[in-house]
Simulated assay, not measured.
Amino acid sequence: MWPRMGAARGQAVAAAVCLVLGIGLIGGAVTGSWLAGDSGEAGQRTGFAAGRSLWHSVPVDRLFPPTVQGRGAGPGEADRTWTRIAVAPDSGCKGAFDPLLRKVLAPVGCERLLRATYTDATQSHVTTVGLLFTKADPAAMTSLARRFDRERLDRRTDLMPLPYAAKGTAAEDFGKGQRAAWAISVLTDAPVVVYAVSGWADGRTVDTPQPAADALESAATAAPAQSGLGHEAQGLADRLERGLRETVDNDDATPDRERAS
């Protein structure tokens, strides 16, 4: 009888020891994860925070390169090259958007707005690109992105961005009536809204603007699609968005951003 009770007691002690060791190993692994900072969610929060300061910590030539190469970005996967012809002084958002678009973007706020205008190699097209740095947290940016997707807000002609028409450049006649194609992207991994709007450099008006996503369809026959203006807007927006993400990931921003006058 006594030996059997002793064996039972020994098994209970062994089980308790295993339980303690198991809890310790699990706790140690979790603590190690926190200390190492290898949580994907933590990395996303860090990247989001880094993106918030890019407007004043990164040189303008990195956010808006003087020349942008668009390999396969044109109709029929033709290569494109865009040259920057103007950079707007960084500013707030007052007067920078039509009233309805300003209302849609209001929930995420406006920390700073950066804009630049490019022309293609033939100087027949002009495209304004914008980076709206918001005051929002990840949840607010995700909510806005979902709304854009759910309500297809990026395809509504009453929500087109405004161009930046710099005097003395090929874009000086690029006004509201000259907007032909556009693209808007609400990022969720950075507090930024990226957009682009394109038109002809000769100042001609456009009766039926077309969202870039529609203009890129193979069956699209409207003037913005046939002329490649949808490719201009989407191509530039995509490449500047990609460059923005690379800058956040590299986290090597320089302290003094060049200011455009």
Score class of each variant (00 low, 15 high):
residue 1 M to T: 13
residue 3 P to I: 10
residue 4 R to M: 10
residue 4 R to I: 10
residue 6 G to P: 03
residue 7 A to H: 09
residue 8 A to Y: 04
residue 8 A to K: 05
residue 9 R to G: 12
residue 13 V to H: 11
residue 16 A to C: 12
residue 20 V to Y: 03
residue 21 L to C: 14
residue 22 G to P: 04
residue 25 L to F: 13
residue 25 L to S: 08
residue 28 G to Q: 05
residue 29 A to Q: 13
residue 29 A to F: 10
residue 34 W to A: 12
residue 35 L to V: 15
residue 35 L to W: 15
residue 36 A to M: 13
residue 38 D to N: 15
residue 38 D to M: 08
residue 38 D to L: 12
residue 40 G to K: 12
residue 40 G to E: 14
residue 42 A to M: 03
residue 45 R to Y: 13
residue 55 W to N: 09
residue 57 S to G: 08
residue 57 S to P: 01
residue 58 V to Y: 03
residue 59 P to E: 09
residue 61 D to Q: 13
residue 61 D to L: 00
residue 62 R to P: 00
residue 64 F to T: 01
residue 66 P to F: 06
residue 66 P to A: 15
residue 67 T to I: 11
residue 69 Q to G: 03
residue 70 G to Q: 03
residue 70 G to C: 08
residue 71 R to A: 14
residue 72 G to V: 07
residue 74 G to C: 06
residue 75 P to R: 05
residue 87 V to I: 15
residue 88 A to G: 09
residue 88 A to Q: 15
residue 88 A to N: 06
residue 97 F to N: 08
residue 100 L to S: 11
residue 100 L to Q: 15
residue 101 L to E: 01
residue 104 V to K: 02
residue 108 V to E: 02
residue 110 C to F: 08
residue 117 T to F: 09
residue 121 A to Y: 02
residue 122 T to P: 02
residue 124 S to D: 12
residue 126 V to G: 05
residue 127 T to I: 12
residue 131 L to E: 07
residue 132 L to A: 07
residue 134 T to N: 10
residue 135 K to V: 02
residue 137 D to I: 03
residue 142 T to C: 00
residue 143 S to R: 14
residue 144 L to V: 09
residue 145 A to M: 02
residue 148 F to V: 05
residue 154 D to I: 03
residue 154 D to P: 02
residue 156 R to D: 14
residue 158 D to G: 06
residue 161 P to E: 01
residue 163 P to Y: 01
residue 165 A to S: 15
residue 166 A to K: 13
residue 166 A to V: 08
residue 167 K to P: 13
residue 168 G to I: 09
residue 168 G to C: 06
residue 170 A to M: 07
residue 170 A to I: 00
residue 171 A to G: 11
residue 172 E to G: 00
residue 172 E to N: 05
residue 174 F to S: 09
residue 176 K to D: 15
residue 179 R to P: 02
residue 180 A to D: 06
residue 180 A to Q: 09
residue 180 A to K: 08
residue 184 I to T: 14
residue 186 V to S: 09
residue 188 T to N: 04
residue 193 V to C: 06
residue 194 V to K: 08
residue 194 V to D: 00
residue 195 Y to D: 13
residue 196 A to G: 04
residue 199 G to W: 08
residue 201 A to K: 10
residue 202 D to V: 10
residue 202 D to N: 15
residue 204 R to V: 02
residue 204 R to M: 07
residue 213 A to H: 02
residue 216 L to F: 04
residue 217 E to V: 11
residue 218 S to Y: 06
residue 220 A to H: 03
residue 224 P to D: 08
residue 228 G to L: 07
residue 228 G to F: 07
residue 228 G to I: 11
residue 229 L to F: 04
residue 231 H to Q: 09
residue 233 A to R: 00
residue 236 L to E: 01
residue 237 A to S: 13
residue 238 D to F: 00
residue 239 R to L: 14
residue 239 R to H: 03
residue 244 L to D: 03
residue 246 E to R: 10
residue 250 N to K: 15
residue 255 P to N: 06
residue 258 E to V: 14
residue 261 S to R: 14
